[in-house]
Design a protein around this nucleic acid. Structure first.
Lengths: 221, 221
DNA sequence: TGTACATCAGTGAACGCGCGTTCACTGATGTAC
DNA sequence: TGTACATCAGTGAACGCGCGTTCACTGATGTAC
């Protein structure tokens, strides 16, 4: 039996899906490509052959579900953008009050990026025009909706008098770029003596949003 | 005559160096690799064959000057780090006073990154451990010396009472990450409606360093 | 002044590899009659 | 209940390509005698 067609992890060929369930392979392909990208962070280095090996199928079977390589990559990016948005939304929902909600959302964004640096790099670390395998910026609407969340959180803080007057869009841009800087430089230079993430995020919010800390709600009981 | 060995731009094979001047090719190879990387920003996508084509030599001639591909890439990175440091130093020297010098250095850093986004991505946009062709983080000492410049500039502002008390190292880290965020997000999402660079940098310095603007030195005559 | 030799800066062909994609094919499962 | 056929989910071999690297070689230039 050829080694080429065996599953990468188990050495066993993946069983064939029953009729009507061929679509399952599509999800498995996206998941496998996502796992590989999470290990390398390099879209250009992703190969259909590696994806097929990971899933345990023959490479041409991918073409039953995606017209070409870039379609598979787009599907992976869409899924990851949705996941990032869900993580931020969940953190915001779990917090109380404008300031804590803003902070929780920013921290969730950074944690997603730091826990999965390669996945984050795949989403935000490429030059859209010059990337060889990607023709257009995918998932931009999903990314934009997550950014809208930040603009709204800043606006709520200002309306609640937790931050001084200012343009929420402009402030949110500053915050987003600063958060992106925090997480992407940490990924690029892991040996640099970075301060704790909470402190860096707090510095950014204090400096750029100028949050007013509500002394009535400090953690002292 | 084979097309393979002709110069990419002119179709003419590069003339052979005189004896004792073989080292010239080394500099030409670094420059050619740098030009290619400035066009793609993708270290993994750089090929020795493309470099040889650009210079107008046969590919194996590269091995007369570099033991392997990663040695050539390291040389390119060292040269670019040195260039970035020189640009920042020149801007700082051309400005007067602690605040303007800090601002000038930060702006020069951003302009270098924005004018040559792919070169900047090559320097700071990779995950050092997982990059396939690069074994260790190169140029780190050159990068670190440029960062020291920022720390000193912040410290001078504090000593000159142009900024409130604070830990210059911690503040410089915040500023650097914010600047990196500004320029790398601009490169990743060029279609986003970014505000003017000067304004973004000013927001970052005002917020994170809390610069005091010296009203005696405003631009009004 | 001539000549044999060493050095130097390269060249051209070939190696084995992994890649995206195409093509004709297989074989299990369902369905119409 | 049996059987011919259609559908579905894949497979295996092959294509042409660009890659990093190795190897034996070339041919101009300098130098020792």
């Amino acid at each position: 039996m050829s080694v080429k067609t065996q599953h990468a992890a188990t050495g066993v060929r993946r069983p064939r899906n029953p009729q009507g369930q061929g679509g399952r392979l599509r999800a498995d392909l996206i998941a496998a490509a996502d796992r590989i990208l999470a290990g390398t962070g390099d879209i250009g280095g992703l190969s259909l052959r590696a994806v097929a090996r990971e899933v345990g199928i023959a490479t041409p079977s991918i073409y039953l579900h995606f017209p070409d390589k870039s379609a598979l990559v787009h599907a992976v990016l869409d899924a990851r953008f949705a996941e990032l948005g869900a993580a931020v939304r969940a953190a915001v929902s779990a917090a109380d009050g404008p300031v804590d909600q803003l902070r929780a959302g920013c921290l969730a964004y950074c944690r997603f990026a730091i826990d999965q640096p390669n996945a984050y790099r795949v989403l935000f670390g490429r030059a859209p025009r010059s990337a060889p395998s990607i023709d257009a910026a995918p998932g931009s609407s999903l990314g934009a909706s997550t950014f809208d969340l930040l603009v709204q959180a800043v606006a709520v803080c200002i309306r609640a008098d937790a931050a001084p007057e200012g343009d929420p869009l402009r402030i949110a841009m500053s915050v987003w770029t600063a958060l992106h800087g925090i997480v992407s430089l940490r990924a690029s230079l892991p040996d640099f003596p970075w301060p704790p993430l909470d402190q860096q995020v707090a510095d950014v919010l204090d400096g750029l949003v100028r949050l007013r800390h509500n002394s009535a709600e400090t953690k002292e009981p």
